[in-house]
Design a protein around this nucleic acid. Sequence first.
DNA 1: TGCAAAAGTGAGTGATTACTCACTTTACAT
DNA 2: ATGTAAAGTGAGTAATCACTCACTTTTGCA
Lengths: 216, 216
Amino acid sequence: MSDQEKLIEQLFDSEDDLTEKQKKIIIAAIESFAEKGYASTSTSEIAKKAGVAEGTIFRHYKTKKDLLLFIVAPMMAKLLAPFVIKDLNKVLNQKYDRFEDFLRAMIENRLKFLNNNMDLFKILIQEIPFQPELKEQFKEHIVLKVYDRFKQIVEHYQEKGQIIDLPPTRVIRMAASSIFGYLIARNLIFPEVDWDDETEIEETIRFIMHGLSPKR
Amino acid sequence: MSDQEKLIEQLFDSEDDLTEKQKKIIIAAIESFAEKGYASTSTSEIAKKAGVAEGTIFRHYKTKKDLLLFIVAPMMAKLLAPFVIKDLNKVLNQKYDRFEDFLRAMIENRLKFLNNNMDLFKILIQEIPFQPELKEQFKEHIVLKVYDRFKQIVEHYQEKGQIIDLPPTRVIRMAASSIFGYLIARNLIFPEVDWDDETEIEETIRFIMHGLSPKR
DNA sequence: TGCAAAAGTGAGTGATTACTCACTTTACAT
DNA sequence: ATGTAAAGTGAGTAATCACTCACTTTTGCA
């Protein structure tokens, strides 16, 4: 599978100044943080799992929180990156005549990414409420950049008469709720169910499209 | 406001064998757990905030986790209780001819409850992934009891031809995603925005109704 | 090959943790 | 008023915490 799109591997490839032991530390930290939570994971535990002396962790990361941020910050950036590309909407407008097509492409792309990086996503949403640095990054990225793009896209399809004429915030929230609702149900609440991804996604798109349809 | 429906107060009223100091401990614990997370809150901190000796906490709760469970378990029970009432659906079927009316009543009722108990809700969703006891309670309540009731209700309105003929799991997930999406956006992600609850709720209902409409 | 810088080590640090216990204070039935 | 059980206390405990540092090993370049 070439489109595995595992963020950790990308990170390891791009920053090739990372030692083998450093990689093991990161992998161990992600595993433990996702399983027991950041606050309940001790550095000695991470060292043990990584097969490394505890001092080695602090050689590379000044504090435990530094390690968390090093792991989680790229996740947020990569997760939101596709929506911040400068001329995203130009490309999209040519490519996707219908809002439905845009929605399908976006869901397939981002849902795959999230499915491949669930541990990181889990850590991210768990820690955003408690880490001011993360909260700030989140607001800055989401509110300022991603929202602006989405707003343009929504308004574009509203002008075309394809979706209902509501404030873009509301339109985005409703669509996002449906998508994240599926993601969370599938991976976090009922991971043991064997989901038929294709139909679930198609039905979710149908739900959003009908919900946002301009017809009375 | 008589319908404040603050769970803590209810708890204090029903279990009147609680001392003043015990109540202060619980209030302090809820505040700290919601603000910094369960694992990052120390018992000495709770004692200090409650104006109580640390030993007093352990006189009433064997462990720190016992305190958490004492606080959070009633939340889950009360949150889901209205859906487990035995003849809920009979009452509903007489009262609410249209699915939309049922939806509106349910949202108003439960959203009010959650808005009045956001701290507890926050602690609950934060800790469910890490506390096996809570996870078990959650699955038992949700999957076995609440889902069964909802399934009956959905099927009832499906037979009436009011909503689309999809597996009830999917219908419930889509409606729940939209409702919780609003709740979380409103209280946890953008609490500083001054939300127009009435219109937001009406629009959310509209979105769900259109999304679940049986028309092609 | 030599050598300096970087990576890795693990015993040791003081602070903090959840929890205990011998003791004092309070509440309340008789 | 008196006795007793429950409530409350806070110094004390061992364990664990994140982090340090003097030291050894590895790496890569001259």
